[in-house]
Design a protein around this nucleic acid. Structure first.
Length: 819
RNA sequence: GGGCGAGUGGCGGAAUUGGCAGACGCAAAGGACUUAAAAUCCUUCGGUCGCAAGACUGUGAGGGUUCAAGUCCCUCCUCGCCCACCA
C-alpha cells in the first residue's frame, strides 16, 4: 500500500461522483424523500473556511441520509442579485452580470474542491431571466391578491451621494461611504402586505417543533403581537378625536398629557390656528428629516413641543395638553400616545424635562410612591389609587376591568397591534428583478400580463448614482405600451429587494427548467416541505419570515399544498479567527484553497467538523488542521496493517475489546448524527476506536488481530467516516474490493449484545467522595454488592467498625456509602 | 433598556441530563528511531503537598437543596449575539 496521496484520491473520486451524478434524482420517482437544503450564497468573492462550514455540514447530512436509504435532494444555486455587484460596476466599470457570473464560476470550483456534491442539474441563478421571470410572477400573484401595493414611505437618503441607502448602509446615522448625515426622504414605494399574515405567521411558529427555540423567539419578537386598548380622546374645540393605543389601560387615570408623532396625519390640521404655529412647524420639519437611526440614538434626550391644543381624557373628563414629540413612532399603534409619566419611563423623562405633571395611580404595596421623589417611573405591578371606582384593585385585574368599562361606555375598544411592518420591496437600484408594472395615463397602474414576462433587465446601462433607479436612463426600457389600452405607457423603474428572490428559490429547484410555470405542483408537493434547512443565524428573521410568508400566500392561492416551507432548521455558528468574525475587511480570512492543496479536502472537512459543536461559534486554528491530517494518516495505515494481518490466530481478548469498542462507536456516531448534528463527538468516538486498535497492538503485538477482524473493523470505520471524509472512505472501500460507491452501501448497525462486558468497573464513594473503584460481575444482587464492597481493603480502612447509615446503589453504575 | 445564550486545564472542547470532571484533539515537556532534522512511535500533562502510596483542592463569585451539583434553586459579576423610544 502506498502513502496517503490525497490529491490523487480526491481528484479521482470527485470526478467519479460528478460523472455518475451521485445526488442526481428523478423528482417523479421517489420512495423515501429527503430534501436537504443549504442557504444559497451571494456570489461575492472567494469563499473562506467560515462559509465552508455551512456546505460541509450539509454535505455530511446529505451523504449520511443517502446511506440510510433516502432519495436525497441536495441542490445549489446563487442569490445573485444585489448591491455589491452594482457598486463594483460603479467603481470598476465591470457589468454586474459579468462579475456575478465570474464569481459563480469561481465559487463552484471551490465547492467542488471540498468534495461537496450537489445535483447540479438543478442549479438556479436568481439574476438570470429564466429565474427572475418567476420572481416577477410571484409579484403579479401578490398584486392580484391585493397583497402588493404602493404608498409613500420614508427612506434613508444620503444628500451627498444623492442616493437611497439600505438600513445596513447607515452607520451611526451617517452614510457609510461619505459620512454625511443621513436624512429621511418621502418616496412612493412598493410594499408586500405581510402584516395581513402577522397572526398566521405567529401562530404557526407553534408548528415548527424542529426549529431552534432561539430562532422561534426571534421571529415572535419581530412579529411582536401586543394586546391592549384603542382609546379615543375628543379634541377640545373640535368634533374630531384622537385615538391612541395602550397596553396599560390600568394607568389611564395617571395620563397627564398626550403626545403625537411628528408624522401624525393630523398635525397640520391641529396646529393651523395655534399661536406658535411657525415654531411648531419648524420643529416638526426638523424631526421629520432626521433619520430613524439618528433619532433612536438621541433616545435619552427626548424633544417635544406643545401644540396649544387640548384633549379630553373621557374616563374622568379631564382636560390634558397635546404635545408633539420625537419619541413617538408613527409606524406603531396609532402614532399617538397617552402619556403616563408616573408609570412609563419615556413619559417620565419627557415630563421631567418639560415640567409636566406626574401623578401616581399605581402604588407599590411594599414601598408607597411619592410623585415628587420619584427618580424613575414605576412600571411594575401594584394597586390602583386616584382611579375612582377602580381604587384598590390590582393593576393586572384593573387592565381587564377598565377595558370592559371603556368598551361599555364607548370610550375605547380592545385592540391588537403588531410591530411587524409591511415589507418594503422597492429598491432604487439596477441589479435586481424589475417590478412588472406599467403606468398609463389613462388606465393607471397596470400589471404586466403574465405572458409578457419576463420584463428583461436591460444590459447596457450607465451607472450614475442619482437617487433614482439607473433604469430611468434606459429609454428603451422605460417606454412601452399599456397592456390595457395600447397607448403610451411607462415602466416601473424600481427593482425588487433581493429577499423576494430568495423567498421562493427552494420551490424552483424542483422544476428548474420548467418554462410555462414556476414549478410543477405535484412535484413540489411531493418534495416539500424541506426536511432539513441549513444556514447562518443572520437569516433567522428576515429571510425565514419572508419565505414563510410567500409559502403561505401560495398555499392560500392553492399553488402549493403545504403552508410551512421548512420542517427542520439548523443554524450553524460562525468561524472566528483572532477573536473576530472572519471577513475581508478585518483581514482575518483563512482561504481553504491553500489548506486543501497542502492537506487535502478530507483533512479540511474533518477539522471543520471537529472544531466544536456546529451550532456554536468556533475559533479557527491552522495547527488543529494538522491534527486532523494525522488522524487520517492513522486510518490510512490500517490498510497496510490489513495487508499484513495473519489469516488465523490473533488474541481473543484484544479482538473482543476492539469489537466491543466498534459496536459502541457505531451506536455513538449514529446517535450523534441523528440527534443535533454533534459531529465533533462522533468524530472523537471514531478516534477512540482507532486508538483502541493501535493500543491493542501495542499491548499484544502486531499479530494480535487476525485478518477477518481487521477487515471487519476497517470496513466499519470506512462506513462511519464516509459522510465526513468521503474521498478516503471511497478509496478504502474500493481497496477492500467494494465495486460500487460507498454511498450506495448501507449504514452499519450495532449489535446490542456486543456492547457490554460481563465485568463492570464501579466507582465506590464514601460520603459522596470517590475512594476507589471495584470490578464486579454485571447485574449481581445488592447483598452481593455490599459484601464485595465491605470486603475491600480500602473501604474497610475508612468504614471499618463504624455505622453505615445508608447505601446508595445504582446497579452497574455507582455505589455511595453514607456514614 | 428588552430578549436569548455562554463562562470548565496553556488552548478548542467532552461529561449517559443530578452519579468517576477534564473524553477526543491542539500545544508543551521527556524518551525511542535517525549522522541530523522532519515524520512516526512511547510516556507525562488542572493546582498544592509528597520520593511514593496517597491526601487536600478544583467547572466565573457567594449562598442553598441533595447521599451526591459543571448540571437544580437564589443573589451577583463578566462576555457574546439579536432587537432596540413598539406606548
Amino acid at each position: 500500500m502506498k502513502m496517503y496521496d490525497f490529491a490523487k484520491i480526491e481528484k479521482k473520486w470527485q470526478k467519479t461522483w460528478r460523472d455518475k451524478g451521485l445526488f442526481k434524482i428523478d423528482e417523479k420517482d421517489v420512495k423515501q424523500k429527503y430534501y436537504c437544503l443549504m442557504m444559497f450564497p451571494y456570489p461575492s468573492a472567494a469563499l473562506h473556511v467560515g462559509h465552508g462550514r455551512n456546505y460541509i455540514i450539509g454535505d455530511v447530512v446529505a451523504r449520511y441520509k443517502m446511506m440510510r436509504g433516502f432519495d436525497v435532494l441536495t441542490p445549489m444555486g446563487w442569490d445573485a442579485f444585489g448591491l455589491p455587484a452594482e457598486n463594483a460596476a460603479i467603481k470598476n466599470g465591470v457589468p454586474p452580470k459579468e462579475s456575478t457570473l465570474n464569481n459563480i464560476a469561481k465559487m463552484k470550483k471551490q465547492l467542488d474542491s471540498w468534495g461537496v456534491e450537489f445535483d447540479w442539474g438543478r442549479e438556479v441563478t436568481s439574476c438570470l431571466p429564466d429565474y427572475y421571470k418567476w420572481t416577477q410572477w410571484i409579484f403579479l400573484k401578490l398584486f392580484e391578491k391585493g397583497l402588493a401595493y404602493k404608498k409613500k414611505a420614508f427612506v434613508n437618503w444620503c444628500p451627498s451621494c444623492n442616493t437611497v441607502l439600505a438600513n445596513e448602509q447607515v452607520v451611526d446615522g451617517a452614510c457609510e461611504r461619505c459620512d454625511s448625515t443621513v436624512e429621511q426622504k418621502d418616496l412612493e414605494q412598493w410594499f408586500f402586505r405581510i402584516t395581513d399574515y402577522a397572526d398566521k405567521l405567529l401562530i404557526d411558529i407553534e408548528k415548527l417543533d424542529e426549529w431552534p427555540e432561539k430562532v422561534k423567539i426571534m421571529q415572535r419578537n419581530w412579529i411582536g403581537r401586543s394586546e391592549g386598548v384603542n382609546i379615543d380622546f375628543p379634541i377640545v374645540d373640535s368634533d374630531e378625536k384622537l385615538t391612541c393605543f395602550t397596553t396599560r389601560a390600568d394607568t389611564i387615570y395617571g395620563c397627564t398629557y398626550m403626545v403625537l408623532s411628528a408624522e401624525h396625519f393630523m398635525v397640520e390640521e391641529l396646529i393651523k390656528d395655534s399661536p406658535g404655529k411657525e415654531e411648531i412647524m419648524d420643529f416638526v420639519r426638523k424631526v421629520r428629516s432626521e433619520s430613524k437611526v439618528k433619532r433612536a440614538q438621541s433616545s435619552e434626550d427626548k424633544k417635544g413641543i406643545f401644540t396649544g391644543r387640548y384633549v379630553i381624557n373621557s374616563i374622568n373628563g379631564r382636560k390634558i395638553p397635546l404635545w408633539i414629540a420625537d419619541y413617538v413612532l408613527t409606524e406603531y399603534g396609532t402614532g399617538a400616545v397617552m402619556a403616563v409619566p408616573a408609570h412609563d419611563q419615556r413619559d417620565f423623562e419627557f415630563a421631567k424635562k418639560y415640567d409636566l405633571p406626574i401623578e401616581v395611580v399605581i402604588n407599590n404595596p411594599s414601598n408607597p410612591l411619592e410623585a415628587d421623589k420619584m427618580r424613575s417611573a414605576y412600571e411594575a405591578e401594584g394597586v390602583l389609587l386616584g382611579s375612582d371606582q377602580f381604587d384598590g384593585i390590582k393593576s393586572s385585574d384593573a387592565m381587564e376591568n377598565i377595558a370592559d368599562h371603556m368598551e361599555k361606555e364607548g370610550i375605547g375598544k380592545r385592540a391588537i397591534h403588531f410591530r411587524l411592518r409591511d415589507w418594503l420591496i422597492s429598491r432604487q437600484r439596477y441589479w435586481g428583478a424589475p417590478i412588472p408594472i406599467i403606468y398609463c395615463d389613462k388606465c393607471g397602474t397596470v400589471p404586466v400580463p403574465e405572458n409578457d414576462l419576463p420584463v428583461l433587465l436591460p444590459e447596457v446601462i450607465e451607472f450614475r448614482p442619482t437617487g433614482e433607479s439607473p433604469l430611468k436612463d434606459a429609454p428603451d426600457f422605460v417606454k412601452t405600451k399599456c397592456p390595457l389600452c395600447g397607448g403610451e405607457g411607462k415602466r416601473e423603474i424600481d427593482t425588487m429587494d433581493t429577499f423576494v428572490d430568495s423567498s421562493w428559490y427552494f420551490l424552483r429547484y424542483i422544476s428548474p427548467k420548467m418554462e410555462n410555470k414556476p414549478f410543477d405542483k405535484d412535484d413540489v408537493d411531493r418534495w416539500l416541505p424541506v426536511d432539513q434547512y441549513i444556514g447562518g443565524v443572520e437569516h433567522a428573521i428576515l429571510h425565514l419570515l419572508y419565505s414563510r410568508f410567500i409559502t403561505k400566500v401560495l398555499y392560500d392561492m392553492e399553488y402549493v399544498s403545504f403552508d410551512e416551507p421548512f420542517k427542520r432548521l439548523f443554524t450553524q455558528g460562525m468561524i472566528i479567527k483572532n477573536g473576530a468574525k472572519m471577513s475581508k475587511s478585518k483581514g482575518n480570512v483563512v482561504s481553504p484553497d491553500a489548506l486543501i492543496a497542502k492537506y487535502g479536502a478530507d483533512t479540511v472537512r474533518l477539522y471543520t467538523l471537529f472544531i466544536g459543536p456546529p451550532e456554536k461559534d468556533a475559533e479557527w486554528s491552522d495547527r488543529g488542521v494538522e491534527g486532523a491530517n494525522r488522524f487520517l494518516k492513522r486510518i490510512w495505515n490500517l490498510v497496510a496493517i490489513l495487508e499484513k494481518a495473519p489469516e488465523t490466530g490473533g488474541s481473543e481478548e484484544a479482538e473482543g475489546t476492539l469489537l466491543r469498542k466498534m459496536h459502541q462507536t457505531i451506536k455513538k456516531v449514529t446517535e450523534d448524527i441523528d440527534g443535533d448534528f454533534h459531529f465533533n463527538t462522533a468524530i472523537s468516538a471514531i478516534m477512540e476506536l482507532v486508538n483502541q486498535f493501535y493500543s491493542g497492538m501495542n499491548d499484544k503485538g502486531k499479530d494480535c488481530y487476525k485478518r477477518s477482524c481487521v477487515e471487519d473493523v476497517l470496513k466499519n470505520v470506512a462506513l462511519l467516516i464516509a459522510p465526513f471524509v468521503p474521498h478516503i472512505a471511497e478509496e478504502i472501500n474500493a481497496f477492500m474490493g467494494g465495486k460500487t460507491s460507498i454511498f450506495e452501501s448501507v449504514w452499519p448497525v450495532y449489535n446490542k449484545d456486543l456492547l457490554q462486558t460481563d465485568i463492570v468497573t464501579i466507582p465506590i464513594q464514601i460520603n459522596g467522595k470517590l475512594r476507589t473503584t471495584l470490578e464486579m460481575p454485571r447485574d449481581i444482587s445488592e447483598e452481593k454488592v455490599k459484601e464485595m464492597v465491605l470486603s475491600d481493603e480500602k473501604v474497610l480502612e475508612k468504614v471499618g467498625g463504624k455505622d453505615v447509615r445508608k447505601w446508595i446503589i445504582l446497579p452497574n453504575r455507582l455505589i455511595n456509602i453514607v456514614m
